[in-house]
Design a binder for these strands. Structure first.
Length: 473
RNA sequence: GCUCCCUUCGUCUAGCGGUCCAGGACGCUGCCCUCUCAAGGCAGAAACACGAGUUCGAUUCUCGUAGGGAGCGCCA
């Protein structure tokens, strides 16, 4: 039998990292077993579901490269099917109509809580003599009263629960709309899902779903409950932890490869290996190797992976992602060096593509003014001669590439009997306006001849102005 | 309250009874390299929640305790 997995988000917001990791595990399990990955949108909550959220989820999946083989299917388009199955259960006496008011249910719940027992429906309407005329009933599933439900979870092992802990859950509301535990079962059954991989917040739902499968005469799929992702404070990941939407990571300058790699290592491992290409993930992944413990999301390691991928991925590929950041930062990529060159120089200096864009702006736009501290420290009178010397040599230089540029600086330092720092630092400030930039030869290279010469000219003027001040003072 | 689940360095994890005075990675600290910042190299600090069993032997198996999480909806 071919393996079929599904990812079934409800469209009430963007795709967050927890959902993304669940989706990744589902996708991997399908791909690793040459099976099918199905996407199903659980949009039965008409109040909270929005088309924007559907799109946001699709965008997130797309960005991560989690392609599905079937779907997306929408539950709202399957209402007839749910109603049909509910009727069947009703006819077979495996479900019944319940006329209990919410008020009665409230009281019941409270009484049970007070008595120290688990609140559950008492089955009042299970064998009703007469049916009230004026109340629209809900449909309840007749859960078995005795026995145990037991299943072998692929990540947790055997999980058992007594039927006495379960109650007759509502499967259809008065208006006929189905509820969650009912729709998942029918969908997974109809879509022939073999492996249900989902968050461990669903563990408690599983036994009652298994009972529904049995009532339907269907075989339950294999379950695998993966742990939740916690925020860095140890609490369950939520909106207040900031960038939990997957697309936010794109905006913040992370590569999808890095996010994927980070996510897969959160709860799953393969020996001591830390870096996995997509192909490696597929060939090495096994759902049974997933950890049981909830994991905390730490950005430090994501940063490291992101930089790693910026360094090792083909520069052209990284450059494509960098282009997005340039657009986002309002920097014209045409006004400077090729983005591939920027990547090759900057990758080892920044953690994110956004930082790369921000710190590369100076190669595309003239800086506005010198950083005061750097200028004060390095654009001194003693720097005038070295800068003039560099300027003269650069003007004459025809091959504007790293090697010869390095040679120029070297020559000036030797000729003037100065350390590299005495030449490079003033030059750096002249070129970029600040005291921090890539190595001086590469800075010149990215800067280009025109912008470099202009910068040195500005620095020289600055120094001259400073001298006249000194003379006056 | 009840039921279910979880528990190795700060964090992610390896470990599937002896190979563990517990290994890797991120982060952190120090040193080296060095034109700034990085990157890189080397070194270092840092963990089996606790208590009983089982066993010749427990990080590894069982049971308790403590702590954490989830569920108990006409939400998904």
């Amino acid at each position: 039998m071919t393996i079929r997995t599904r990812f079934a988000p409800s469209p009430t917001g963007f795709l967050h990292v927890g959902g993304a990791r669940t989706a990744l595990f589902c996708w991997l399990h399908a791909r690793a077993n040459r099976g099918a990955f199905i996407l199903r949108i659980e949009d039965t909550d008409l109040e909270r579901s929005t088309p924007e959220s559907v799109q946001a989820i699709l965008d997130g999946m797309d960005w991560l490269g989690l392609d599905c083989d079937e779907g997306p299917f929408y539950q709202t388009q399957r209402f007839e099917r749910y109603a049909e199955v509910a009727d069947r259960l009703l006819n077979e006496d495996k479900a019944y109509l319940c006329y209990c008011s919410r008020e009665r249910l409230e009281k019941l719940r409270k009484r049970q809580m007070d008595a120290g027992i688990k609140p559950r429906y008492d089955g009042k309407c299970r064998h009703l003599e007469s049916t009230p005329e004026d109340i629209k009933p809900v449909v309840r599933f007749s859960n078995p009263k005795i026995g145990m439900v037991s299943f072998n979870d692929l990540v947790r092992g055997r999980i058992s629960i007594s039927n006495t802990e379960l109650d007759d859950l509502v499967i259809a509301r008065p208006d006929g709309s189905p509820t969650y535990n009912f729709t998942v079962v029918i969908d997974d059954m109809d879509m022939q899902i073999t492996h249900v991989i989902r968050g461990d917040d669903h563990i408690n739902n599983t036994p009652r779903q298994i009972n529904i499968y049995q009532a339907l005469g269907a075989e339950a799929p294999v379950f695998a409950h993966v742990p939740m992702i916690l925020g860095s404070d140890g609490a369950r990941l939520s909106k207040r932890h900031g960038a939990v939407g997957v697309m936010q990571y794109r905006n913040d300058g992370y590569l999808p490869q890095a996010v994927l790699n980070y996510l897969v290592r959160l709860g799953w491992s393969h020996g001591d290996q830390e870096v996995f290409s997509r192909d490696e993930m597929v060939s090495l992944f096994s759902i049974e190797d997933v950890n049981r413990k909830a994991a905390a999301f730490e950005t430090d390691k994501l940063d490291w992976l992101n930089q790693h991928y910026m360094k090792v991925l083909p520069t052209a590929e990284v450059a494509d992602h960098l282009a997005w950041q340039f657009a986002d930062q309002g920097i014209n990529p045409e006004a400077g060096p090729a983005l591939e060159n920027v990547v090759s120089v900057q990758a080892e200096r920044v953690k994110t593509l956004r930082d790369m864009a921000v710190q590369s702006r100076v190669f595309f736009e003239d800086y506005v003014e010198f950083d005061p501290a750097s200028a004060k420290k390095h654009l001194r009178l003693v720097a005038e001669h070295p800068l003039e010397s560099v300027l003269a040599k650069l003007e004459a230089l025809e091959d504007w590439s790293v090697e010869p540029l390095h040679q120029v600086i070297d020559d000036v330092a030797t000729e003037l009997d100065l350390g590299m720092g005495k030449v490079a630092q003033p030059l750096r400030v002249a070129l970029t306006g600040s005291g921090v930039s890539p190595s001086i030869d590469k800075t010149l290279w990215l800067m280009g001849k025109r912008r470099s010469l202009d910068g040195i000219g500005r620095a020289l003027k600055f120094i001259q102005a400073r001298r006249s001040e000194n003379v006056q003072g």
